[in-house]
């Protein structure tokens, strides 16, 4: 459904050129939950921004159902890591979530229903008229998820969405994402630097190399559904997978920081 083929991204020119992404290909199938994991600074965010049409790749391309992505497609919803900056502080929860719906051809009732359903599915009913900054970080990220869901995307791109919330909230949010994914039948691409999170959430895990980034390997997860924070993580398969990915990333990571190779 969503294909990344031969994607590369370089910043700068001449001697100052930085290869953020060397060459990268993988596909996301309809209804799938794909986690992209890699060491920090490996261009995960760059990759996701290219997939969302926010950033033009230097070469290669992203296609959505065969159409080249050259700007944000309407089938894509996005959840940013920086929830407090992505939500508009001057809008209430209701207005924040309705903001992307204003230009869709929807009746008022239809729009209200979408907003209310989304808010209910992230468990924030009763906070409709609050402002984002009146809520905790975890709740704000739930608002951002609700906004993306109400937009009715076919694909949800999530950029390290839980990197800045505490561990307990994070576990709750992970389960929330798994729930709404089923409820909304949405395809998810989830970028994270947390190997446990990737294994716990994903149907498949795409492991990236350090920059210049390429795909190190793609692993099917195959853990039983529904996932459970305690039981799933107790399984030997879970431990095995996370150890495998950990070694895979570790092996590729240089012991000492290399000098940039002249190009």
């Amino acid at each position: 459904m969503l294909d990344v083929s031969g994607l590369s991204k370089t910043y700068g020119e001449g001697e100052r050129v930085t290869h953020a992404i060397a060459e990268l290909s993988f596909s996301v199938a309809e209804g799938e939950f794909v986690c992209v994991v890699g060491p920090s600074g490996c261009g995960k965010t760059t990759l996701l921004r290219c997939m969302a049409g926010l950033l033009a790749p230097t070469s290669g391309r992203v296609t959505l159902r065969g159409h080249v992505v050259d700007g944000p497609p309407e089938q894509i919803g996005f959840v940013f890591q920086e929830y407090s900056r992505s939500l508009m502080p001057w809008l209430s929860l209701r207005d924040n979530i309705a903001l992307p719906l204003r230009h869709k051809a929807l009746g008022r009732d239809e729009r209200n229903r979408l907003v209310e359903d989304a808010v209910e599915s992230v468990g924030l009913t009763g906070f409709m008229d609050h402002y984002p900054w009146e809520l905790s970080g975890g709740m704000q990220q739930r608002v951002a998820i609700a906004r993306a869901l109400a937009y009715q995307p076919e694909i949800l791109l999530m950029d390290e969405p839980f990197a800045s919330v505490d561990a307990q909230t994070r576990a709750d949010l992970e389960d929330l994402v798994l729930r709404v994914r089923t409820a909304y039948g949405v395809t998810v691409v989830f970028v994270t630097h947390d190997i446990d999170e990737a294994v716990y959430l994903g149907d498949r895990v795409v492991v990236l190399t350090p920059p210049p980034t390429a795909v190190q390997e793609v692993l099917p997860v195959g853990l039983p559904e529904p996932r459970d924070q305690v039981e799933t993580k107790e399984l030997p398969e879970f431990a095995h997978l996370r150890a495998h990915i950990f070694r895979s990333i570790k092996r590729k990571q240089p012991d000492a920081p290399d000098l940039p190779t002249p190009t």
Binding site: F80, S86, M88
Partner: peptide, 28 residues
Amino acid sequence: DPVALDTARVFRLGRVERLTRVVLPGAV
């Protein structure tokens, strides 16, 4: 905020809406 602008872009807000709903309130 560049993140707010990216949000507006990714959710396909039009030029006018981006100005009146995102840029101007931030400048107030």
